[in-house]
Design a protein around this nucleic acid. Sequence first.
DNA 1: CTCCAGGGGGATA
DNA 2: TATCCCCATGGA
Length: 281
Amino acid sequence: MVNISFDKKFFNIKDTLYCGQVFRFREYKEGYLVFSQDKCAYLFDFDENTVICCNDGDKEYFENYFDLARDYSVIYEKALSLGVDLLTESAEYGKGIRILNQDIMETLFSFIISQNNNIPRIKATIEKMCLTLGDEKTFMGEKYFTFPTVEKLASCPIEQLREFGLGYRAEYILRLAKDIINGLNILEFKNLDTVELKTRLLSIYGVGRKVCDCVSLFGFHKSDSFPVDTWISKVYKEDLGGELTDPIKISDYLVDLFGENSGYIQQYLFYYKREREKLKK
DNA sequence: CTCCAGGGGGATA
DNA sequence: TATCCCCATGGA
C-alpha cells in the first residue's frame, strides 16, 4: 500500500465526488472508497492534505485519475478574473473540485445510463451491474466489484440489463457493447481533437450532445466541453440572462464564451447551483 | 421543425 | 393521489 498526499486547498474529496462527474464511490471509515475499472482507492483528510491510499501498482493510475499533475489554482484564478458574480461565488464554493480522468469505457457506459436520470438511481443501477457482471475483489478488507467488461455486457440478456434499472437505456448499452466487440475502437478516440472526437461519439446509438460532452470532459479530459443539463440551463437563463432554449446552442455559446476552461467552469456552476438549491429546502 | 415514448423513484402539489 | 422532474435521445 502507498499513500499519496496532496494539498487539500484544491482537492476537496466531497466536492470532487459529489459534483456529479463520478458514480462509483461510497463512504468508508473517515473518508471514501473510490472505484475505477477494477481498482480501488481510499481517500481521507489528514491535516491540510487529502490522502489517496491505494495498492503500490495503482499509484500512477490514481495520480492521473485525480488529475494531480494539473495546477488548479490557475483555473480558479481564471474563473475569478472573468468578473461574473455567480461564477466567482461558484468557483469559491467549488474550488476543491478536480475533473477526474476516468476510465473511458466506464465513463461512456455510465453517462449513457445517466441520461434523463437522477444521481441516486444512476449509482444504484451501476452498482447492480457491477455486482452481477463484475468480479469480486477486496481492498483494505472491504469487498467490492469491478466494472463489467465489454464482453460481459455484450453477452448479457437485455431482460437482465433491464433488471438493473436501465429501462430503455438497456438497448443503448447492449448495442454499444456489441459494436465494440465487433471492432468499434473507442480507445482510439484518444488521438482525436475535440471536434473530431465529438463527431465520433455522437455517431454512437444512445449518445446525444449531453452525454457526448460529459464523456469528452470526464473520460477524455477535453476541457473545451460544456455539458448542458437542466441545472446549467437554469444558470444560463436565470443568472446569465440568456435567451436561447436549445441546449445544444447554449452549450456552443458557453464553450465559445469560456473556451479551454469551459469544463472546469461548468463543474463550478453546476455544483454550486444544485447544492444551493438543496440548501434552500 | 415538433411531439412523444422510454423506466422508475423521489419531490412536489 | 396525481403530476412533474431527472446531468436526453431516437424516431415518427
